[in-house]
Design a binder for these strands. Structure first.
Lengths: 152, 152
DNA sequence: TTCGCAATTGCTGCCAGGTCGCAACTGCGC
DNA sequence: GCGCAGTTGCGACCTGGCAGCAATTGCGAA
C-alpha cells in the first residue's frame, strides 16, 4: 500500500504535530506509547470539546484494551505539558481540547448549549482581577454560566 | 424560660427572615416543614459558602433523622425560589449561600483559596456577552479560576 | 542485538457527590 | 378532624474520577 501524502494532507499535518508532541514527551523523560499516540490522534482529529469518556471510546476503536484510567493519566500529562486545556463545563464531565484552540466558554444553565467566545471578551475582567487582587485569571479552564438567547 | 428578644436580636432578625421565606414557600403551594425550617436556620446562621454536606450536618445536629437527599431537594427548591444561590467552586462540591449576599468568585487552581469579588467586576463581560451573543451571564453561579497572588 | 530498568499500562477497587423511585408520613385548607 | 398533595426517609444506583499494584514495555546504553 502506497503512502497517501498526496490524498490526505490534513492527516499528515496532524501526524507531524503528533510526532512533535511525542518528541516533547520524550524530551521530558516520557515515552511514545501506542496509547499516547492514539489519544493524540483523537485530540488532533477534531477541534471540538471531548470528554475523557469520548476520547477513550475513540482510542478503543483502534486499540480496545486501552483503559479509561490510562486515558485520564495521559490527559493529565498532556495538560501538564501545555498541549491541551481541560475545562469544566458546569455539571457534566471535564472536557479537553488542544491548547492551540484557546477560547472562553458560555454555557447555558437550562439547555446546556455551549458557545465558544474569543479571549478578548475577558480582557477587562482579567485586568481588574490582576489589579485589585493580584489574581491571574485563566479564561480557558472555566465555564461562564447563564441563559442563552433561546432560553431566556 | 423567658423569650430572649433583648439579648439576641440578630437571631430574631434571622427568625423573621426565615418566616418570610416560609410564607413565600406556602404561597407557592409548598409547606413549612421542620426540615425546611432547620435548613433555613443553617443558611441564615452564617454568611459563608456551605456545601450540602455541611448544611446537612448542621441540620442533623438538631434533627438527626433529616436525610441528605432531603437537604438536596430543599436546596433545589430554595434556589428555584431565588432565596439562595448555588455555586460550583471548581473541583469540590457545590456550595450554597443566601442570594442576598450575591458576589462573584475567584478560585485558585493551585491552593484552592477563594476570593469573593463584587458583581461590578463582571460588568464588561456581562454587557459584551449580551450584545454579541444574547447570552445573559449570571456571575454568581460559576467560579473564575486562575492563580492567586501567592501561587503565581 | 540484547539488556536493564524506569515509565507506563490494565486492572480492580474505591471514593465523592449527587439523583431517583417509592412507600410512609404530615401540613394545612376545608 | 379529614383528606390528600407535598414532603420525607431510605436505599439503590449512577457518573466521574483517582489510587495502588503487579505486569508489561519503550528506549538508551552496552
Amino acid at each position: 500500500m502506497p503512502r497517501d501524502s498526496q490524498t490526505r494532507p490534513a492527516e499528515h499535518a496532524s501526524h507531524d504535530a503528533i510526532e512533535d508532541v511525542l518528541a516533547l514527551v520524550r524530551k521530558q523523560g516520557g515515552r511514545a506509547t501506542p496509547a499516547r499516540r492514539l489519544l493524540l490522534q483523537a485530540l488532533f482529529g477534531s477541534r471540538g470539546h471531548r470528554s475523557a469518556e469520548e476520547l477513550a471510546a475513540e482510542v478503543r476503536s483502534h486499540a480496545p484494551d486501552v483503559h479509561l484510567s490510562t486515558v485520564y493519566r495521559n490527559l493529565e500529562e498532556l495538560e501538564r505539558l501545555g498541549v491541551i486545556d481541560s475545562t469544566r463545563l458546569g455539571e457534566g464531565p471535564a472536557t479537553y481540547h488542544l491548547a492551540s484552540a484557546a477560547h472562553g466558554h458560555l454555557v447555558c444553565e437550562k439547555c446546556g448549549s455551549m458557545t465558544e467566545v474569543p479571549d478578548e471578551m475577558f480582557g477587562a475582567l482579567v485586568r481588574s482581577a490582576r489589579a485589585r487582587y493580584g489574581f491571574a485569571i485563566n479564561p480557558h479552564r472555566f465555564a461562564v454560566t447563564g441563559l442563552c438567547a433561546n432560553c431566556q
